[in-house]
Every structure is written in C-alpha cells, then in structure tokens.
Computed example of a mutant assay.
Amino acid sequence: MKKGLFMIALLIFNLAFGQEKKKATDEEKLTKCILENTNYFTFNGQKPDGKGWDILENLFANNQFVAWGEYHNSPLLSQLTNYALESASKYGYKTWCAEISPFAAAELMRIAKSKNPLDTISRIANERPNFTTFPFFQTKEDIGMLTTANQFGYTIWGIDQEFQTAFPYCLDKVYQAQPKNTRERFKAVYDSLQASWWNPEAKLLDSLKKGIKQPNLKRVLDDIKISKDIYYYSDNQRRADLMKTNFYNYYDGLKTKNEKVFFKMGSNHLARGMNLETNLYDIGNAVYELAQRNKTNFSNVYIMVRYTEEEGVITDDLEEKNNQNPKVFSKLYDKDKWVLVDIRSLRLRMRYDNSLTSDTYKMIEKYDYVLVSPEILK
C-alpha cells in the first residue's frame, strides 16, 4: 500500500514538474517580445518625438552601418529621413547609400548644390514628361532629403543599376559633354541609341565608349549596358552582384575602413541572409558580414505600411490573402503613432514549431527592428 502511494506521489510530482517546464511556443515568445519591446513616436513633419525615435537615433551611435529597409515613394518617410540624416551626422555619418546608379548619385549631389534643387529636378522632369530620370527623388519631400544631405556634408553612394527610363538622359549627358568634332563623328551612333533607348545595342554603346575620353562617362555607358541586360533577362543575381560591386568600389576608395554608412533602400535588399523576394544574398547580407569583419556593428530596420490607397480605394494589407507584410505586425498599426518593435531577442529563442507564419519567421531571422508606419500610402 505504501509502495502504491509512493508511486502515485511520484507521478503527481513528475506531472507537476513537466507542466512547470513546459516550453513556450514561438507565438507566445513573440507575443511576450512585442509586449516588452514595443515603443512609439509621433511625427507630423516636424521633429519626431518619443522613445521609439530615441531608439532609432541611438542605432547611429552604436553601429557602423544602419540600414532602413523602406517601402518606396512615401513623402512622409522622406520627411522622416531628413531627421535621420541629421541625427546620423551627429555620430559621424557622412555617407548615404541609395537605390540609384552611381551616375544618378553624382547628378543628384550636383543638383543638391544648385540654387534651387527642386526647380532643377522639376525642369528635368518636364523635359521628359514620360520618363522617370531619378527614381525615389521626385517630390519636394524627396528633394528635401537632398538639401539636408548637402547641408550636413553627405556623400551619396549610388550602388544600383541605371534606371531604364533614365537611359535617354544618361546618353544625352554623355553625348553633349563631348567636343563638337566628336559629336559630329558619333551623331549617327547617338541617334540610333536614342531611337532604341529602352534596349540600346551593346556594340553601339561600345563604339561610343571608344570615342570618348572621360572615364566617368565611359562608366555610364558600361552601366547602361549592364542594366539593359538586367531588365531584359530579369536577372536578379546580376543586380545583386552589381550592388555589391558598386558598394565596394566606393568602400575600397576610402581612406579609413571605419566610414559610417546610412542605407535607405527597398527593405528586401537589406535583409540579413537572403533577400526576402529573390532568395539571393543581397547587399544587406554583404554589409552585415563586412561589419563582422570590421568588428563593428550592423543594424537593419524593416519599415512597413499597412494601408495603401489607389484611385480612392483603400487596401488593408492585413486583410489581403497575398499580404505584403507579416500580419502579426500589421495588427500593431496605430493611426496616430509610428510603432517600433525590437525583435532581436527572438532570433536565438525560436523553436520553429510552426506556431508562426513563415513570413514572420523570416522577418525575425533577417531584421533587428520592425517599424510600422501610421500613414495611408497613396
């Protein structure tokens, strides 16, 4: 009888101990993380205010590379970037890396120094009304970023392909920079290139390249040749390789390898590990590994928007079957505040028990912070 009672007591103890040691699911861990690591800030176009912004600003103090993975074409986000550039400059940042070509970066820096950059950009746009010459630098808020960058002495690094609809502008700049005799000699070549601007022939680009002397303009023609193939073949691998090549061309030219760089590019490019869309190792992973090599730090922020509006119709990404962002983060949306979640603590604690969606797991693996915008993107 005593033996039976002992066995029952032991069973009860083991059950109680087992319940005590029951491991939390990944969903429970994420819920706890969100409760403990979510902060907010407000922003009405003036200075951001709140602990969330203080945390973002502090990233510039503690990292060599800070990456803002953005959603594109947001005037509000461009306004916020003004303050990021200003904040970063306090901690020694003088380099801004953007999703544009090296030639576009040089042109934008030149335009930023002009008397009225917005007028200059508007004039270029009006001259080519059906062409986007400088992607992500079109609105007055975008040009505000250029003005701020110039004010605080930034160098802009353009590491991407040449934008396809910018080909005519680039070709014109190359051609018009030549002496009269060269223009006369290559007029037929130039006219043929412009006639098929969306896919100019490589042999014609090479012909014009051999006839000019300026190294920087030769590189523009090389960039067009590479870029047209990336577009034609939808070659994401080559684009990722080009971004890394262009980045290291800039980086290798530095006097010190401790240069601090602020990245503002499409969020997928700035993932740690593989790009979320292409499943290729992109520039974000390269810079992360460079920070490891330098024994410095890299931090990336996934910036997302829940609501978009097109032709008066508002779309809620949370309700979409093919959602763009993990729904668990869309649920955090606040119409009056920016919501910042620090998800770093989860990376080593995941059990991968399938209690979270696959896009949520990927977000946790690849980013340090998630920032949910309050805007309705138009």
Rank of each mutant, 00 (worst) to 15 (best):
K3W: 03
F6C: 02
L10V: 11
I12T: 05
N14G: 14
F17T: 15
E20Y: 01
T25Y: 00
D26M: 04
L35V: 12
N37G: 06
D49V: 08
G50P: 12
I55H: 06
E57P: 11
N63T: 06
N63V: 05
L80M: 15
L80A: 14
A84N: 11
A88D: 00
K90P: 03
K90N: 10
T95N: 12
T95Y: 15
I100M: 12
A106Y: 12
E107N: 04
L108P: 04
L108W: 13
I111A: 02
I121H: 01
A125V: 10
T133F: 09
F137C: 15
E141G: 13
A149I: 06
Q151L: 03
F152E: 03
T155W: 10
W157D: 07
E162A: 15
Q164R: 15
F167Y: 15
K173W: 11
Q176A: 07
P179F: 01
E184R: 15
R185S: 05
F186A: 13
A188Y: 08
D191G: 04
S192V: 05
L193S: 03
L193W: 11
S196A: 01
N199Y: 10
I212T: 08
Q214Y: 13
Q214A: 08
S227M: 13
K228N: 12
D241Y: 07
K244Q: 11
G253F: 05
K257T: 11
K257V: 09
K257P: 00
E259I: 03
V261H: 07
F262R: 08
L276V: 06
T278N: 05
N279C: 04
N279D: 01
Q292V: 07
K295G: 11
K295S: 15
V305L: 08
T308Y: 08
E310K: 09
D316G: 05
L318P: 01
K327P: 00
S330N: 07
L340A: 02
D342G: 06
R344Y: 07
R344V: 09
L346M: 02
R349C: 00
R349D: 02
D353S: 10
Y361C: 06
M363D: 01
E375S: 09
L377M: 14
